[in-house]
Amino acid sequence: MKKLLDYYLEGDNYNNNSYWNKRVGNDHLTVGRGNNTMSTISMMILPNELYEDYLSKTNELWKENAKAENIKIYEGTIAEMEKTAREDIPDENKSDIVKHFVIKGHLKNIKENKIIPEKLADIESNYLMPNREKYLSAKLVDDTGSIDVFLQMTSLKPNELNKDRNHDVVILYNNGEPIYVVRSSTLN
Rank of each mutant, 00 (worst) to 15 (best):
L5T: 01
G11W: 00
A138V: 02
E69D: 11
D168Y: 06
D27S: 11
L29A: 05
K119T: 13
E69H: 06
S185Q: 08
V149M: 01
I71H: 05
K163R: 15
E80D: 14
Y180P: 00
K157T: 12
D88C: 07
R23H: 10
A85S: 13
N113D: 13
E87V: 09
E60Y: 10
M1W: 03
P47E: 07
Y127E: 15
N126D: 14
R165M: 13
E49I: 06
V141F: 06
A85K: 02
L120K: 12
N166T: 00
K119S: 10
N93G: 11
I89K: 15
N16F: 00
S137P: 06
T58F: 12
D148W: 01
R165Q: 12
I97L: 15
V31T: 06
V98K: 15
L46Y: 08
D148A: 04
I147T: 05
Y14A: 02
T37E: 15
D168C: 07
S95D: 13
N159C: 06
Y19N: 11
E82V: 02
E133M: 06
T84N: 12
I41V: 13
R23G: 09
G105D: 09
K99D: 05
I147W: 06
N65L: 13
N59E: 15
A121E: 13
N126L: 06
I41W: 03
I116S: 15
S18I: 06
N126F: 05
N113F: 00
A121H: 07
H100E: 14
V182H: 11
I123N: 14
H100I: 06
K139A: 07
R183T: 01
I78K: 05
N188G: 10
N175C: 04
V24Q: 14
T186H: 08
N26S: 14
E10S: 02
N175F: 00
D164S: 04
K139C: 00
D91Y: 14
T186M: 09
Q152N: 11
I103E: 08
L46R: 13
G76V: 01
P158E: 12
R23P: 12
I115W: 11
E60W: 04
F150T: 09
E112L: 08
S56A: 13
T58N: 15
E160R: 06
N59L: 04
N175L: 10
D142C: 05
D88V: 03
H167K: 08
L55F: 10
L161A: 12
F150I: 09
D88Q: 12
E112W: 00
Y127W: 01
L187F: 05
D88L: 09
I123W: 00
V31W: 01
L9S: 07
L29W: 01
G76T: 09
K83P: 00
L5S: 00
F101P: 10
T37R: 15
